[in-house]
Design a protein around this nucleic acid. Structure first.
Lengths: 347, 347
DNA sequence: TTGTAGGCGTTATCAT
DNA sequence: ATGATAACGCCTACAA
């Protein structure tokens, strides 16, 4: 069986009795070509089942119509929600999306970046690690626009969009303090991204501001932004001789883990333990969970990131024709109070 | 500022004093080229920062090193879990992944398929809609290997992997029946994919087999595989004059919605209402949820789908050199009993 | 308004 | 073992 060769621009041209360049122009809807021929070309192209080869076009024009998104854990609904919006914006612009999951593996992210650049992505959204210097060089050498999402890289010339982590953590901790908590545990995330550090810093700052200087370092436990790691952290925290009366988690998934462990330990929330999270993922709002948390506008973050990236890809300029300066956008989080916080028990 | 041109094979060749073709062969580690020159080429390539242009290579070889995955809702953790495994397998093979979200929009899926084929994907994993005939033609014309995941298309020559939906639903419903339920509501999903129909069919079959023939059609409510749609379905079901004593949902997300509504209506689960789902997504296992459900091995499904697809892309053959026949794999689901099922109240 | 020619960066074929 | 040449499919000067 003969394998059918692909229909090319030349085939259309031949069929129309025109030159390839004319067909190209017609298909690109250039005003230079006569409406009549345009119509004819379109008709023939459709009949023959002609489809442009983006590969050939990319080789020629240096634009592939693709962007990449790298996330540390695509099964985490925080990233999934962002991803969804990015996909939508990209789709609206006719751009295809490469997705990569980096785990917490620095090297994997690097290899992903080179691999995607080999594939000639037009732009890249980074949501996971900070970059290695080699990555930065590569990105610069190939002139790939980058948007950093929720992780700021001060060595990279790139747009940034994220939540105001400091403000978010403050909102939560001040609420916990105002309700009477003095001994507050903190489950932090891997320090590969700036967001984790910012949240941890805010924790220390708020406690200090409220005169809780005697903050025990062992009240801070390292998690991995997953539910299991939240469970494990809670084991550590709640098994102490003097367990904290409240636990603040750097994301909701870990807060769910803490709630699970508390439940299994026979502790009732919020009576025996207050818990708060960060992100406001969907399950947090479920009445059986009712997690009080800090809501990060991740839909908006995803949309903004994609929009800003595509702007750069398209070489947008300001009214004076100057390239747009890099933007640094912090979205304000809000506090959502549900059922996981109460005053600590008098003991 | 001069924008630095990309380093090409020719640059490496010139620097080495070799012909481009030799460099190409050296880089491809062909046995034909001398080890010494290989080493030299490699060294120079590294020094110059040479990176292959996959675009050019794809144009030449007709292989892009990319595959596509189309899902109806990437924020649904069912798909996210599959996606994660697909990504992992692909990454292991050096293949990049295009991700597309189709909603429940038939036309969007079609446009995605053409768009990805324009970008010369080597293969495609379909998890959402059934195909239009035009899609099938396009796929056939371009000879793109396809794997159908959890949605069977009998008109398409493709590998298939999915759960045994019939068996899963039977497991659940027979459990509900054995515990004493006779009036069982069913929240189904959009019939755009075969899985939804299979689950609904199984529902009818099991009820009939147990002599519950007087099954009221209004006990079947259409959902959208989302939590909100589960909530709405529950409103319909529980506001009836004779509400069912149990509700079976075609996926866990909708079961969560049912649980939410029940909770808000002051019904306690499982005392007043039994609920079961399908999938066994992560939250289902949370102690505060404890949803009894049917566990679909979606990690394995994702892994299998990706592996089978890549096999085809690489043109794998059986020992006789014949192309591998299309496989149709049904994975067995298992029942996970937690805390959402009890005998119906005597009334 | 349409046609011609060259090149984007590779690889495959054939010659040396 | 290495080199020359052509071709993958498209776009874009420039020429007609």
């Amino acid at each position: 069986m003969r394998v059918n060769r692909r229909v090319t621009l030349n085939d259309v041209a031949r069929e129309c009795g025109l030159a390839p360049s004319t067909v190209s122009n017609a298909l690109a809807n250039k005003s230079i070509v006569t409406p009549a021929t345009k119509a004819n070309v379109l008709k023939v192209a459709r009949e023959l089942g002609y489809r442009v080869s983006m590969t050939a076009r990319a080789l020629r024009t240096n634009r592939s119509g693709t962007i990449g998104l790298l996330a540390s854990d695509i099964a985490n609904s925080f990233y999934a929600d962002i991803l969804k919006q990015v996909e939508e914006v990209a789709w609206g612009k006719g751009i295809s999306l490469f997705l990569g999951s980096t785990g917490f593996d620095d090297a994997k992210q690097s290899r992903y970046i080179t691999s995607l650049i080999d594939k000639q992505i037009d732009g890249l959204i980074l949501t996971s690690h900070s970059l290695r210097t080699t990555d930065r060089k590569l990105i610069k050498a190939h002139n790939i626009p980058v948007v950093c999402l929720n992780r700021y890289d001060r060595h990279l010339n790139a747009d940034f969009v994220g939540v105001d982590n400091d403000r978010g953590v403050r909102l939560a901790l001040e609420h916990l303090v105002s309700v009477g908590h003095r001994s507050i545990g903190f489950v932090t995330g891997p320090a590969v991204a700036s967001a984790a550090n910012e949240r941890l810093d805010a924790y220390h700052a708020v406690l200090k501001e409220h005169g809780i200087t005697r903050v025990d370092d062992s009240l801070v436990v390292l998690g991995e932004y997953t539910e299991v790691s939240g469970r494990e952290a809670a084991q550590l925290l709640l098994r102490r001789t003097h367990p904290p009366t409240a636990i603040y988690c750097a994301n909701d998934l870990m807060a769910l883990g803490v709630m699970a462990t508390a439940h299994e330990l026979g502790l009732s929330i919020p009576a025996d333990l207050s818990v708060m999270g960060f992100d406001d993922i969907d399950v947090a709002a479920h009445p059986l969970i009712g997690l009080s948390t800090i809501s990060a506008p991740r839909g908006e973050m995803g949309r903004l990131a994609a929009t800003m990236l595509i702007e750069r890809v398209e070489g947008a300029t300001d009214p004076q024709g100057e390239p747009i300066p890099f933007r640094h956008i912090r979205l304000a989080p809000t506090m959502v109070l549900r059922n996981t916080v109460a005053a600590p028990k008098k003991s």
